[in-house]
Amino acid sequence: MGVPNIPLRIPSHAQKVCSLYKRALRCLESHTPDRPLMRYKAVLLRDRFERNRCEKDAVKATKYLLDGEKELFENAHHQPKVFAASAGEVLWNRYGVSPDSVLDYWHPLEKAQYPEYFARREQRKRQMEQWWEKTYGKPGQDEKSHH
């Protein structure tokens, strides 16, 4: 979501295999809604990975990995099973939360409807400023505010 796919590290072969295994399991889960059947298929999948676990030949191991990736791509589900609160799903960002600073931009007439709250808010802002200056010092002359 918005993050470019820049490789930040070089994963080892083992890491790639583990990632493939995890994604394959997720794909299996999407395809098989029946949980016991899915567990049975997951065991078979694990067995396929375990069979080539002790492969010492790097060329062969890489070939297995690439074959696995290809198979996963070919069997990818058209609607993968994702959690409802995941990014882009139905529950994601359902309620936009406006920042607290929006309250400072209310019209004085609007603020006057909640006098107690805004009086306390101003008091707390002052206290916060005092605390900040006590801890981190006063702002310089060139600076207009605390950062």
């Binding site: 809604p33 949980r35 099973k81 994702v82 959690f83 409802a84 609160a85 139905v90």
Partner: peptide, 12 residues
């Protein structure tokens, strides 16, 4: 009931 999930694969 399913906490907002609409996927029928979660139901059963």
């Amino acid at each position: 009931l399913l906490m907002g999930s609409q996927d029928i694969r979660n139901m059963g």
